[in-house]
Amino acid sequence: MNYKSILIDQLNACYNDKSWFIPLQEVLIDLNAEQAAREYASKQSIWAIVNHLIFWNEKWLERFEIEQFELPGTTNNEDTFYVDPNTINDAEWNRTLQRLDLVFRSWNTALEKSEEFKLSSEISSYFNAPWWGVVSNLCLHNAYHIGQIMLLKKLMQLQKID
């Protein structure tokens, strides 16, 4: 077993490989735009959390692929949860799901093409963290938010909201 295969397994477990929990792709498959955009007491929606996941997965993938790591100026994390209220429709929701699928497939491709030495190399400008650790923590971040999405979906089902 090597870093590459472990990280690919973790990413797939989060997105499309049912193992310890229902993967994100399966959780989202039967939601429409209105359901995905519905806010609860937390003022967050499933769609907003998906946008947040897309943002951070794309950002770290970009850093991984360019092999130059610089921390961004200032990213307001709250802004990554934004859903434009003027674009809440099924076509936009489907585009969001396609973008989510693309970033997970792109991560798989990037990891498959990567060499083990890259995954064990440290990012000096990011606490000397090794790439394998950063990607593994990204998977944990994904799993955390998948849990939130699952709870919101269960709440929706309990309230019998169509």
Rank of each mutant, 00 (worst) to 15 (best):
2 N>K: 15
3 Y>C: 06
4 K>P: 10
7 L>G: 06
7 L>P: 07
9 D>I: 00
9 D>Y: 07
11 L>M: 10
17 D>L: 04
17 D>I: 01
19 S>R: 04
20 W>S: 00
25 Q>S: 09
25 Q>F: 04
26 E>K: 13
27 V>T: 09
29 I>S: 12
30 D>W: 02
36 A>F: 06
39 E>K: 15
42 S>M: 00
43 K>I: 02
43 K>W: 02
46 I>T: 13
47 W>P: 15
48 A>P: 14
49 I>V: 11
50 V>E: 01
56 W>F: 08
56 W>V: 01
57 N>Q: 04
57 N>T: 02
58 E>Y: 08
60 W>C: 01
61 L>C: 05
61 L>Q: 04
61 L>P: 01
62 E>F: 05
63 R>K: 13
66 I>M: 07
69 F>M: 05
70 E>N: 14
70 E>Q: 12
71 L>Y: 08
71 L>T: 04
73 G>S: 07
74 T>A: 07
75 T>F: 09
76 N>W: 03
76 N>H: 05
76 N>L: 07
77 N>M: 05
77 N>F: 15
78 E>T: 09
81 F>E: 01
81 F>P: 05
84 D>I: 02
85 P>W: 07
86 N>E: 12
87 T>Q: 10
87 T>Y: 14
89 N>C: 15
89 N>A: 12
96 T>I: 01
98 Q>W: 03
101 D>R: 07
103 V>N: 11
107 W>T: 01
108 N>A: 03
110 A>H: 02
110 A>K: 03
111 L>Q: 00
114 S>P: 04
115 E>Q: 15
116 E>G: 08
116 E>M: 11
119 L>V: 11
121 S>W: 09
121 S>C: 12
121 S>A: 13
122 E>S: 10
124 S>V: 11
124 S>W: 01
125 S>T: 14
125 S>M: 06
126 Y>P: 13
127 F>A: 14
128 N>M: 03
132 W>S: 09
133 G>E: 12
134 V>M: 10
137 N>T: 09
140 L>V: 13
140 L>C: 07
141 H>Y: 06
142 N>S: 12
144 Y>H: 15
145 H>V: 02
147 G>F: 04
148 Q>R: 00
150 M>E: 09
151 L>V: 07
153 K>D: 05
154 K>F: 04
156 M>G: 05
158 L>A: 15
